[in-house]
């Protein structure tokens, strides 16, 4: 018996996506393995957020495959061609994924705790006591147990994003997707969110992060993907990628970023 290679958590093959006449993703191939912390960087309009949203099928992709823990995401292949998965099927395909958004998207009419527990009660059928206990545990993990009763309006941006992370973690995802999680934050609030993410990475969570935080991409990730014009231009170990970019486009992108940082 030969040892088989580990199955990737997320596998993307030949992915294409257009919005009207504009091609946003033009043939993406990418494997993400369990325990990977992958940062996707690139200029705005490069397609990185679209790629992340496609992984969760928040926007349907046009061609190619996205397989999440062995299941095709969003589409069902039939002899007649492809058709959209039904609501239940799609929910099952998405179940291993947690998502954190740039603008948090907490539900404003619910307290921090209720934001975390709603899906536990509704989608997981958990009892109130059990859900509340788990919710408090999750808020504790992001350092916000004392803010459980606060409503989103009463929280800072950094606190909102931490609640959003707790909400996503509560349903025990096997991989977490972060869509520019710190881009909407005031600079002094970025650190608290990044430190929660670093802890999560250290615990072995599989993470895919679209980000402009080059420091985070350089130090916390084990792989970095550079996208431009709807394709992956360069991919690999972040230290190597940042020190010695192979492509002119990445070199140029890093140059612009360094200028802005100074």
């Amino acid at each position: 018996m030969t040892e088989t290679a580990p199955l990737p958590a997320l596998s993307i093959r030949g992915l294409k996506k257009s919005f009207g006449p504009r091609t946003v993703l033009n043939g993406i191939d990418l494997d993400i393995f369990e325990g990977d912390v992958v940062c996707i960087i690139g200029p705005s309009g490069s397609g990185k957020s679209t790629l992340l949203r496609a992984m969760a099928f928040l926007d349907p992709y046009d061609a190619g495959d996205i397989t999440v823990f062995g299941r095709l995401m969003g589409w069902r292949d039939t002899p007649m061609g492809r058709e959209l998965q039904g609501e239940q099927e799609l929910a099952e395909a998405r179940a291993p994924l947690g998502m954190v958004f740039q603008h948090f998207h907490l539900w404003p009419h619910l307290s921090a705790l209720a934001n975390v527990t709603l899906a536990l009660k509704l989608a997981r059928g958990m009892g109130r006591k059990e859900a509340d206990a788990l919710g408090m545990e999750m808020l504790g993990r992001v350092g916000l147990a004392s803010h459980a009763r606060n409503f989103p309006d009463q929280l800072s941006g950094g606190q909102k994003q931490r609640v959003a992370i707790a909400r996503a973690l509560a349903v025990k995802p096997r991989a977490m997707l972060f869509d520019e999680p710190t881009s909407a934050l005031d600079p002094q609030l970025v650190g608290e969110v990044l430190s929660v993410m670093k802890t999560l990475a250290a615990e072995g969570m599989t993470m895919v992060i679209v980000t402009h935080e080059m420091g985070f991409a350089a130090h916390a990730a084990n792989r970095t993907v550079f996208m431009d014009g709807g394709v992956i231009v360069e991919e690999g170990d972040p230290k190597q990628l940042f020190r010695a970019p192979k492509s002119a486009r990445l070199a140029e992108f890093l140059e612009t970023w360094r200028e802005r940082a100074i």
């Binding site: 609501e87 998502m99 998207h105 709603l118 509704l122």
Partner: peptide, 28 residues
């Protein structure tokens, strides 16, 4: 905001649940 609905979908809530627990209270 559509993102609030996407967040609910990502957490496995069904359409009716989203309507009753997210959209209607949010719109109120």
């Amino acid at each position: 905001p559509p993102g609030e609905i996407e967040a609910a979908r990502m957490l496995g809530l069904g359409r009716t649940q989203i309507f009753l627990h997210i959209q209607m209270p949010g719109a109120l």
